[in-house]
């Protein structure tokens, strides 16, 4: 079973087997250095999905390198998801990945470090100064006040929300990190007051809550409200998550099970530096939010886009299908149902 994608904090041992060999630090290869330069160009906010990057010849001249080096550099950025090549048309930036990288650079300046991931903000959604003001604002929302069951993402910025929601008498549904062990349900009557601090943390959640298998998840009441962090969010409510799009998957799963509807309110809690101006076209599986809550404001998005109705099985990555507990049994059930229908 592999670690969450991109984990950098591997606890490896010092080079025992290579005693006596001093590893001199080596400079990164030229194409990698050029890719960093091209990345800077690609992160100019003026560039969008429609405006191509400078042509190969211009990049060669700019960096003083060969066509082969420019191509390798570009390939590296295509592989990492920042660029796409359209034969005959040019090389374009993938706007969501561009936004992700721009915002991460800002976010790292205001983020509170995670106990394991420190400031590797690619691996987690950080807490930030002012998150408690955001939580206060969420608690004042009519949709929160009337909610009996709240979905709360396992983001560091929402830890306080997970605690106070129990104090406020609500059941909460929280995915485990990267959904690896499914969803956890926490109920106020099952978590004594003195344990709510722990129960709101990722480490403590599974000790005090119920880890739900698929039948138990099906039996949950529908969500009255979803609250999530993000990497970035637009004023129109387009939610940009980490590269793995866990929130979109969580939504798709809940929608598949009938636990959320098109009208279920979704709130994003973010630092002001995470709100991006301008428009981002949501992909077909992207979930748009209704409200953007920062320490300074609560803004409606008037989102114009419908949300996915369920899981898109064709687009689900095989890795995620295998690593997240519900997808296998759910797909098997669907296949049994449809084969029964076709025999009838």
């Amino acid at each position: 079973m592999s670690a969450p994608p991109g984990t950098t904090a591997e606890r490896s041992s010092p080079p025992v087997a290579r005693r006596g060999v001093v590893r001199a630090p080596t400079a990164p290869p030229l194409y990698h250095q050029v890719s960093l330069g091209i990345e800077e160009i690609a992160l100019s906010p003026a560039l969008d999905d429609e405006a191509p990057l400078p042509a190969e010849g211009q990049l060669m001249a700019r960096f003083g390198v060969s066509r082969g080096t420019v191509r390798r550099a570009t390939e590296e950025l295509v592989r990492s998801g920042l660029l796409r090549s359209e034969p005959g048309r040019g090389t374009y930036v993938n706007k969501s990945e561009q936004v992700r990288r721009i915002v991460r650079r800002r976010l790292v300046q205001v983020a509170l470090p995670d106990s394991r991931f420190h400031l590797d903000v690619k691996e987690f959604v950080p807490d930030f100064d002012g998150s408690s003001a955001c939580i206060d604002a969420v608690r004042a929302l009519p949709d929160y006040v009337s909610a009996r069951t709240v979905f709360a993402a396992p983001d560091n910025s929402l830890e306080m929300l997970r605690r106070v929601a129990l104090d406020d008498g609500k059941d909460i549904l929280v995915p485990t990190y990267a959904m690896r062990r499914g969803f956890v349900r926490l109920s106020p009557n099952a978590v004594p007051d003195r344990d709510r601090f722990m129960a709101a943390t990722l480490d403590g959640m599974e000790r005090f809550g119920d880890v739900l298998d698929l039948p138990a998840l099906r039996r949950c009441p529908p969500m009255d409200l979803l609250v999530t962090g993000a990497t970035a969010v637009t004023q129109q409510g387009v939610h940009v998550g980490g590269g793995q799009a866990y929130f979109d998957l969580e939504w798709a799963l809940l929608a598949e099970l009938g636990l959320v509807r098109q009208s279920t309110p979704i709130v994003a809690v973010v630092h002001p530096c995470q709100v991006v101006p301008g428009r981002l076209r949501p992909g077909p599986y992207d979930v748009t939010v209704d409200l953007v809550v920062t320490p300074e404001s609560v803004e409606s998005t008037n989102r114009g886009y419908p949300r996915p109705e369920g899981i898109s099985w064709r687009s689900l990555e095989p890795d995620l299908f295998n690593l997240i507990p519900y997808f296998g049994p759910l797909l098997a059930q669907r296949q049994r149902r449809s084969s029964r229908r076709s025999r009838a």
Binding site: A3, T7, E10, T176, R180, L202, D203
Partner: peptide, 10 residues
């Protein structure tokens, strides 16, 4: 909570 069963990470 984060590394799941990946014993090389914790």
């Amino acid at each position: 909570s984060r590394f799941h069963w990946d014993f090389s990470s914790f």
